[in-house]
């Protein structure tokens, strides 16, 4: 009966026209989305209407990740040009260009209140930028990782990072502790469940794992898909019932979170890699990106 509800259909297909879409991200309330293009541009969309709202250009190379602030007034993006750019949403101008990383910046996230931007880079470091002040230097740099950072997740009191050195590191600001969990293979993506208790970890060994955040215990494993050499993203649905991951054959695999069984496979584009996923924070909407197109998945209104 759950699965019946989780019956996603492609609602919209948008050709972003920005080369390859490196990442697609919902904003905080899920009404808009951002696409990071290989054409050095960042685009703001209304995915529900397939409307292009704004294009942000200013990166010197491919944009790799972006995150919008909690009040939707700012966007922070990062790219291959080693810089993190803070954008003003309405004017489309870059407010700050934060340079500090020595290699491409692969991921960036705001904290809960959008006061700090946390960026992870190929140079094995994570940098925390104070976006409130005019400080152009990182307020803190974490260099514990032994290899490139692939993904980040930030909660109200912790920063979770996934790195190619096979580890998921959780910096607990409250406890002043660093917990690092060894995952069998290079970690491609880390996200948190909505209850904040579990980590969804994609690793290069074609496996998505659900780990208990506190203890690091393995709660479930989801397999069957193929990651290839891609930095495949994964996510959980808005109610923490399903785990979703991209696949190199163009499918989006959905597993039941508890049972670990494959519930459905959504075909984005046969033959092309679906590497970026973003689930709506509160509703049944999924965004997937493959090549130059993004797709909005959801339950059609007439079926509801």
């Amino acid at each position: 009966m759950e699965n019946a509800e989780f019956n996603l259909k492609c609602l919209k297909t948008i050709d972003t026209k920005q080369g390859a879409v490196r990442a697609v991200r919902f904003n905080v309330d899920g009404s808009y989305c951002l696409t990071c293009g290989a054409d050095k541009k960042l685009k703001l969309w209304n995915p529900h209407k397939a409307l292009l709202l704004k294009t942000y250009s200013g990166h010197a190379d491919e944009v790799l990740d972006a995150c919008s602030s909690c009040d939707n007034s700012q966007i922070v993006s990062c790219g291959q040009d080693k810089s993190v750019i803070l954008w003003d949403v309405s004017s489309g101008t870059p407010l700050r260009r934060l340079r500090g990383h020595a290699a491409r910046v692969t991921c960036v996230r705001y904290n809960e209140e959008s006061t700090v931007a946390v960026s992870g880079s190929q140079d094995n470091s994570i940098m925390c930028w104070d976006v409130r002040s005019r400080n152009m230097k990182p307020i803190q740099v974490m260099r514990e990782a032994k290899d490139g950072i692939t993904s980040l997740a930030v909660t109200d009191h912790e920063i979770v990072t996934g790195s190619v050195d096979c580890k998921v590191r959780r910096y607990d600001i409250r406890a002043n502790r660093l917990f690092s969990d060894f995952i069998g293979d290079a970690v491609t993506y880390v996200s948190l469940t909505h209850d904040g208790q579990c980590l969804v970890v994609s690793s290069a060994d074609n496996m998505v794992r659900l780990l208990d955040k506190e203890s690091g215990d393995l709660l479930a494993e989801y397999s069957g898909h193929h990651m290839g050499d891609y930095c495949m993203e994964s996510c959980v649905d808005n109610r923490d019932r399903h785990v979703l991951s991209g696949c190199i054959d163009g499918d989006i695999w959905c597993w039941d979170l508890v049972q670990g069984t494959v519930t459905s496979r959504l075909t984005h584009d046969r033959g092309s890699v679906v590497h970026s996923l973003s689930f709506h924070p509160s509703q049944l909407f999924l965004l997937s990106a493959s090549h130059g197109s993004i797709k909005l998945w959801g339950v059609p209104e007439d079926e509801l």
Binding site: N111, E112, E113, T115, V116, C128, D130, R132, I139, Q140, M142, E144, D156, H157, C166, Y171, D172, I173, R174, N176, R177, L178, F179, S180, D181, F182, I183, G184, R209, L211, D212, S215, G216, D217, L218, E221
Partner: peptide, 29 residues
């Protein structure tokens, strides 16, 4: 341990880490 799916104690490492004061402040911690 990871191969045996014995995640948890065996795969976990813990260490001290100091967030800087500004980071704490910004995180309201």
């Amino acid at each position: 341990a990871a191969k045996l799916k014995m995640f948890g104690r065996l795969t976990r490492q813990e260490s001290d880490w100091r967030p800087c004061s500004l980071l704490c402040k910004r995180f309201n911690i």
